[in-house]
């Protein structure tokens, strides 16, 4: 007998929650306990009084599993609402990355030139290195990192994505 693995499509969920102790553990733990995938997770409070946080989770799974994830999240008491951006349609996804590259001579010039193409900003510079700050859709960041790999990539930090529906109204 062999263990079967499940494939599925990528979904971006935003979850609005009461900003109470343990909420992140509760949500992350729900994913582990029920065998759902987390590709990325971001969280920060979004109201003036710090009482409500917005969590963005990128997950993947077959449609029935995605539906279950939404229902399971929705029944947690501190969860206000769960939005599936992928299902809602047109939306913006952005991520921020810090990318450290070291090198001299040609490599250094080329890194700087490519950074310009990608609108990555050097936020720290030494004679031997840069840290670039880059925002964009995840695949843009992927490509930038792939290019930097050839030019002396030292370290990468990524925030994971935040997302929002397009148009005038909120989700």
């Amino acid at each position: 007998m062999k263990i079967q693995q499940q494939e599925g499509e990528r979904h971006v969920l935003t979850i609005t929650v009461d900003n109470e102790a343990g909420i992140l553990a509760k949500i992350a733990g729900l994913f582990t306990a029920r065998g759902y995938n987390i590709d990325s997770l971001t969280v920060a409070d979004i109201t003036e009084n710090h009482q409500v946080s917005r969590i963005t989770i990128v997950t993947h799974g077959p449609p029935a599993v995605i539906d279950q994830i939404r229902a399971q999240l929705d029944r947690l008491v501190p969860v206000h609402k769960v939005i599936d951006l992928t299902e809602l349609g047109p939306h913006v996804e952005r991520e921020l990355a810090l990318v450290k590259v070291s090198g001299k001579g040609e490599h250094r010039v080329e890194a700087l030139r490519l950074a310009d193409v990608f609108r990555a900003r050097p936020v720290d510079t030494t004679t031997e290195s840069f840290i670039f700050e880059l925002t964009g859709a995840p695949d843009k960041i992927d490509s930038f990192i792939a290019l930097m790999r050839e030019l002396g990539l030292v370290e990468v930090g990524r925030t994971g994505i935040v997302g929002m529906t397009r148009g005038a109204s909120g989700a």
Partner: peptide
């Protein structure tokens, strides 16, 4: 009464 019980194992 529990939305999460619906379509969990049987559609």
């Amino acid at each position: 009464i529990d939305r999460a019980s619906i379509n969990k194992t049987v559609p």
